[in-house]
Amino acid sequence: MTDVKNLDDIFQAKIDAEQKIEPKDWMPDAYRKNLIRQISQHAHSEVVGMLPEGNWITRAPSLKRKAILLAKVQDEAGHGLYLYSAVETMGVSREQTIDDLLSGKAKYSSIFNYPTLTWADIGAIGWLVDGAAIMNQVMLCRTSYGPYARAMVRICKEESFHQRQGYEIMAVLAKGSPEQKEMAQDALNRWWWPSLMMFGPTDANSPHSAQSMKWKIKRQSNDELRQIFIDRTVQQAEVIGLTIPDPELKWNEETKHYDWGTIDWTEFNNVVAGNGPCNKERLAARNKAHNEGAWVREAAVAYAAKKAKRKAA
């Protein structure tokens, strides 16, 4: 028998050689657990992420914007599915994964616990929230677990229109009437800091990061990704004449990066703990949809059984 120590070494050697891990390969329990948690949280985020945007489908300002928003929300459902399938390859049933979301046991990205108050929020979500998600997802295209990496490649291909349509909404509003520009600025003010929180705790406070880097689940640290996002987004805000709501934001000639203020981690921890503005509403909406869809799932199974029987007869 090969002992676990040896299996561990073989596993790490594969990772170090940039070989992907596939579902049937031996992997340490902790690697499996870590990925089940991360990928399922990611899947739940895609699914819950449909709710704040769905809020504006019936009130989009034009048919064009409505069609775009519908397409984007439909993409998010697809992204949730790719990721749920990746979780399933690790031996957890789809039903279990979904139950963990519905019962509140599993987490999803805290950003979706903020409300979408105006149409400009749809712009800010695409530009900032999808923009931040893309930074993370581009990195995850090279993650060590094959099915996760493949899902990410597919998602990244589809996601770039999401960010561009959001930025376009903001650009159009910023060029519009003073009220429209103010609406865009207000959305930026409310979504900026929560978007920065999406990258997770600072490297100093991220206890699992080192192991995730060693296993090449992650390739860049939270702080690194956050800084790249800030550097890119500040320039984009300038182009459309909006102001980043951070008085400490300043270009640093030495580091060639922006220096910026401090994230309110108390707020972050509060929302993670379930006390954000929309936590209860989001879970209630998911549970309602799931429960009200139960008869459809049952009817489809009954119909499939009836058809199979008729075919056999």
Binding site: Q74, G78, L81, Y82, S85, E88, R94, R150, A151, R154, R297, A300, V301, Y303, A304, K307, A308
Partner: peptide, 17 residues
Amino acid sequence: GSLHAADPQMAIENARD
């Protein structure tokens, strides 16, 4: 990739979507 469906026809339609 993969997906869940009650029967082959539904699997094809979901795959299309």
